[in-house]
Design a protein around this nucleic acid. Structure first.
Length: 588
RNA sequence: GUGGGCGUAGCGUAGCUGGAUAACGCAUCAGACUCCGACUCUGAAGACCACCGGUUCGAAUCCGGUCGUCCACACCA
């Protein structure tokens, strides 16, 4: 289905043409003066220059061409040259009925579906998820769903930090604590135990301890570096330990991401890139891209058009070890081999932008990735506390993601119990659903690239532009529909009639904007666009709801029409929040 | 120092490729409803869109400059 506004635009363009002007001036936007009209076209003012005519004369000429167009209730040319448009109720109702009866609300899939690898999540193995991981997961998940909805072929990869010094540190600390473990016995040749010699909570405590020690004690750090090197060379016992660390961590990570309704198709990590590094480095040398600088191996990525100095991309440290430039490049190798993506998009902290500029340039320059492949950096801003500074716990530490979720769920549960309309078990379940929506909506309704203030009390409020407000609107419609069905009625074969009030028409007009909102959000990779849409739609629903008695309406056809509108609105909202990555409960 | 982001009512934000009275929410004040499930709805008040200049018939939006603020600037990821 063509977007509603495009249908309008077609008419306007045809009118420009018929009046003797270029149809390029016929673009239509939603009115910024709702008190005057529903849609507007400003093209006459732009056309005035080319045709050396007064804008108002052009606008008038165009409007005359539209006098018998069935789509418009009114078309008027207004000084200095605006075209103010109002559509007929029939046109909107027809469009809404088509939406209701078409798969996916008639949203047209992307004309050229892309194969996309979406890199988001980025947790570190053996470290608990903290609030810094929230945005990548939440934004990435939504972008994945949006792109899929538009017909793109998306593979989500978590890209774990599971390689390098951090692993050496853990092994070293384990060795200190439990030297008797067979993993440290070089002469041991048997099978290693299936059971990991630690739990997730031990693991989460071991890493920071080890990290602290290595900063203070050079000898300790030396050991960790050695362990890292031996691990990377494939020492049997260490490899077995790494497997344990990964298993224990991944199990825990999955649990946490499940709770966020965030999932990944691939659980790959830096380690999976490691096998590709030696050949990659050799090829870069052989092709003359990589050279030695201060003992390190680097590739120049500066370009003439740069307004600042872009440092070279470092491939190997002076001690010969790989670093994150290296693994990110090598990761692109297997992604290229296995998927031949048209696009690889990274949802990462915007502070890493320079690093990705270097990696992207280096990948293109050295031919790891073909020119045709789009490498996209989706940098997100920092999550700040109410004081405007990075979000911390009360005592200034880094807050665990699970603690944050617990805290918000508890607050929500208390709120729900206060109303006292459901039993404890359901209250708890509902609280979890609403709390997640509150957090995700609070994040996604902001532009990804901007920093934002994480204000729990505002996010969990039922009022204003919040997740709970959206959910509440859905629940309210569900409740009406349920009542209707309980009375022995059916929701099949309902038709939306020509709107009989301003609020009904506004609601329908709002619904027609769905396609523009999703496709815009998907192509720009900006979920906040979709949030703005559902907020506006929710407002229209509540406005309509407030003015209209639905179940008490005596005219059967009207009542059915109202229900059809609400049902469509509900489905559109549910589809939208699914694309944002959360859901609505049955009751609130 | 170099480069980049940001600066819109008390607070939090929206303003897409420049267009008609700068939009929304919270908080404040005043009403309506209290019925289809804690709500919702209507209205009031609140902004020299950081500052200065330029382009244009027309700038929050584009271009320069100033100030403030945050961030990044090869051997940690």
């Amino acid at each position: 289905m063509k977007e509603f506004i495009k249908l309008i635009e077609d008419e306007i363009k045809a009118a420009f043409k018929a009046a003797g002007f270029d149809e390029k001036y016929g673009s239509v936007t939603v009115s910024n003066r709702p008190d005057l009209c529903e849609f507007q076209c400003n093209g006459a003012m732009a056309a005035a220059k080319e045709y050396h005519k007064k804008p108002i004369d052009i606008a008038t000429a165009v409007s005359e061409q539209l006098s018998d167009c069935s789509m418009f209730e009114s078309v008027s040319a207004v000084m200095p040259g605006f075209l103010n448009l109002n559509v007929t109720g029939e046109a909107v109702a027809t469009y809404a009925n088509n939406m209701a009866n078409t798969e996916g609300f008639g949203v047209e899939k992307a004309g050229n579906p892309r194969t996309v690898i979406l890199d988001y999540g980025g947790p570190n193995v053996a470290k608990p998820l903290h609030v810094g991981h929230l945005r990548s997961a939440v934004i990435g998940e939504s972008i994945k769903r949006l792109l899929r909805f538009m017909g793109h072929n998306v593979t989500g990869d978590i890209h774990m930090g599971d390689w390098g010094l951090q692993m050496g540190l853990i092994i070293t600390e384990l060795n200190e604590r439990k030297p008797e473990l067979v993993y440290f016995d070089d002469s041991y040749e048997g099978d290693y135990p299936k059971e990991a010699p630690f739990t997730i909570s031990e693991l989460e405590e071991i890493y920071p301890t080890a990290s602290g020690k290595s900063k203070e004690d050079p000898a300790y750090k030396e050991k960790a570096l050695l362990a890292t090197a031996e691990l990377q060379k494939g020492r049997r016992g260490y490899t077995a330990l790494l497997e344990h660390i990964l298993n224990v961590s991944v199990t825990d990570l999955k649990k946490n991401y499940d709770r966020l309704s965030v999932s990944f198709d691939l659980w790959k990590g830096e380690r999976d890139a490691d096998p590709f590094i030696p050949d990659m480095v050799e090829k870069m040398k052989a092709d003359g891209f990589a050279y030695e600088s201060d003992g390190a191996l680097v590739v120049d990525v500066a370009e003439e058009s740069d307004t600042k100095e872009i440092p070279p991309c470092m491939i190997l440290k002076s001690d010969g070890a790989a670093l994150y430039d290296t693994t990110d490049l090598a990761t692109l190798i297997w992604r290229q081999n296995d998927y031949h993506p048209d696009q690889v998009a990274y949802v990462v902290d915007k502070r890493q932008e320079l690093h990705f500029v270097q990696v992207f340039r280096c990948a293109k320059k050295t031919g790891i990735v073909p020119e045709s492949c789009d490498l996209k950096f989706i940098g997100f801003g920092t999550m700040n506390g109410k004081d405007g500074k990075p979000f911390k716990t009360r005592d200034g530490g880094v807050m665990r993601l699970s603690s944050l979720l617990d805290e918000i769920s508890e607050k929500m549960e208390a709120k729900i119990k206060e109303a006292g309309t459901m039993d404890d078990e359901e209250a708890k379940k509902t609280a979890d659903i609403v709390a997640l929506a509150a957090i995700k909506y609070g994040d996604l309704s902001n532009q990804p690239s901007k920093d934002y203030i994480f204000d729990v009390d505002r996010f969990i409020s039922f009022e204003g532009n919040t997740g709970p407000y959206i959910l509440y609107t859905i629940v309210r419609i569900k409740s009406i529909i349920n009542k209707y069905i309980e009375a022995g009625n059916s929701m099949d074969d309902l038709t939306i009639l020509t709107p009989d009030s301003d609020s009904a028409k506004s609601l329908l007009l709002s619904l027609t904007k769905f396609e523009g909102a999703v496709s815009g959000a998907a192509e720009e990779m900006l979920p906040n666009r979709l949030c703005a849409f559902i907020y506006e739609l929710s407002n229209e629903i509540n406005h309509f709801y407030h003015e209209t008695r639905i179940l008490a309406e005596e005219d059967e056809a009207k009542k059915k029409s109202y229900l059809a509108m609400l049902d469509l609105a509900k489905r559109v909202l549910e589809q939208s929040i699914d694309l944002l990555g959360f859901e609505a409960p049955e009751h609130m």
